[in-house]
């Protein structure tokens, strides 16, 4: 444990490059997933019922797919014989990020849709009755849904940074290129080099703690926005 803290304190270059890469991959994947994820989540949660209910159920089920299954699916797409094999993306950072997008997207959509469907129905009715144009309505919906979007992004980031299946299968754990915290921990543990594994574990724990605090904080602000408009 002491050696692990020493590695963190002395700014071991390889250790910190792994940490930086993990954060970069995860942040990129979540941001790219948020571009379609947020509008899709709002659209599904806008008016619950009908086909949207089925869509929400499907997306919710997809958010529970094991990471290795997603890794396998994207591997099939990117492998040399796969439909996207000509891109030569396998075992590159782009492949890891692509896999992590598939991991984050259903979680984002599912959580935002679920949260948005529980927003006071008078919000939607107010926009409808005043015939607010779609772009202005979307911007108001974003403001209204900000706490749940923050929570969804934090949850997606937590899931992505802590996963090992996608990063291992699509990145190949290549030193200096696709090695992330989780794949490095797996490798170091198998080699018996526990110091660096523990140091990375401490960083992962710290990230998980910060993300959970963010989720807790944003979920605290969620009912407040609704309380200000009593029924």
């Amino acid at each position: 444990m002491g050696e692990a803290f020493r590695l963190l304190r002395t700014a071991d270059p390889e250790l910190w490059s792994i940490i930086g890469r993990s954060l970069l991959f995860s942040a990129s994947a979540v941001l790219l997933a948020a571009i379609p994820g947020i509008p899709c989540g709002i659209a599904i949660g806008w008016k619950p019922g009908g086909f949207r209910h089925w869509l929400a159920s499907i997306v919710h089920a997809l958010s529970a797919v094991p990471t290795v299954v997603i890794g396998l699916f994207v591997y099939g797409l990117l492998s040399r014989t796969g439909p996207l094999g000509f891109l030569g993306m396998l075992y590159t950072p782009a492949a890891v990020i692509l896999g992590q997008i598939f991991l984050a997207l259903p979680l984002l959509v599912s959580f935002i849709a679920g949260g948005f469907s529980s927003i006071d129905p008078r919000f939607r009715e107010t926009l409808e009755t005043h015939a607010i144009p779609p772009i202005a309505a979307f911007s108001l919906a974003l403001r209204e849904a900000r706490p749940m979007i923050t929570t969804a992004v934090a949850m997606a980031f937590s899931r992505v940074i802590g996963e090992v299946g996608v990063a291992m299968m699509l990145g190949g754990n290549i030193r200096g290129l696709t090695r992330t915290m989780t794949t490095a921990i797996a490798l170091d543990t198998s080699r018996g080099e526990f110091e660096r594994a523990v140091a990375l574990g401490i960083v992962l724990l710290a990230v998980a703690l910060v993300m959970n605090m963010l989720i807790h904080w944003s979920s605290q602000t969620l009912p407040a926005s609704v309380r200000r408009n009593p029924q």
Binding site: D120, E125, T126, T129, I132, A136, L140, R143, S225, Q231
Partner: peptide, 25 residues
């Protein structure tokens, strides 16, 4: 949408100021 507008018994105030609420609608 063109001819009628409905007011809730307990109106929903949109995020923003009083003036912004008027501007939006």
């Amino acid at each position: 949408r063109r001819h009628t507008v409905y007011l809730h018994q307990h109106p929903y105030m949109l995020a923003g100021t009083v003036l912004q609420n008027l501007e939006i609608c």
